[in-house]
């Protein structure tokens, strides 16, 4: 799906965004929370199943073109926790921007995620980096070659022993 590449100039109320997402995803949207404070920008956090990630992103696009900010992952041992960070209402006015942080918990053994590159070309680096760091696979990612680790022949780069024992200092 390709969204109209334009930012809205009129922001929707942040609570309305939250209630719309809650209504659409019901119990699939775990721990939805809207944090607003002086120290941090307004941020909407939630956890959702991976099967509904693309639908979640498409739902965000109904409010504004979602700005894809970052994709990061944490290895919790029994699962991998992926964080998809977006921003809405980038151009909608002073203090109107809303950050969205959607977490997806991948159980151990499940390494396949849908790729967001078709929607956001800038997601490519984040996805390729997670292939390297956490051994994930992304369905629909056109280029799965190593991003940071390669040698002169284009293969995965070698590591020195000191890199592996954590004794970098």
């Amino acid at each position: 799906m390709i969204y109209a590449p334009e930012y809205v100039i009129q922001a929707t109320d942040h609570r309305e965004v939250l209630s719309c997402l809650e209504g659409r995803f019901g119990a699939d949207l775990e721990m939805p929370q809207l944090k607003e404070g002086e120290a941090q920008s307004p941020i909407l956090t939630a956890t959702l199943p991976k099967a509904r990630l693309l639908e979640f992103v498409d739902c965000l696009a109904e409010f504004d073109f979602p700005h894809f900010r970052a994709l990061s992952g944490e290895d919790l041992g029994e699962a991998i926790l992926l964080h998809y960070d977006f921003a809405l209402f980038r151009s909608a006015g002073r203090g109107k921007r809303l950050e969205i942080s959607a977490s997806v918990r991948l159980p151990s053994g499940d390494r396949l995620m849908p790729s967001l590159v078709g929607r956001f070309p800038s997601a490519e680096y984040g996805e390729r980096e997670l292939i390297e760091t956490l051994g994930l696979d992304f369905e629909g990612l056109p280029d799965k070659s190593p991003l940071f680790t390669f040698d002169d022949r284009g293969r995965r780069r070698v590591a020195a022993p000191c890199d592996l024992d954590g004794g970098v200092h």
Binding site: T133, L134, G135, F148, L164
Partner: peptide, 16 residues
């Protein structure tokens, strides 16, 4: 970042 982690990535090819 430092992308080469030994333990949590069982599918990774051996590092050489």
């Amino acid at each position: 970042l430092f992308p080469l982690r030994p333990s949590p990535v069982p599918e990774m090819a051996p590092l050489r």
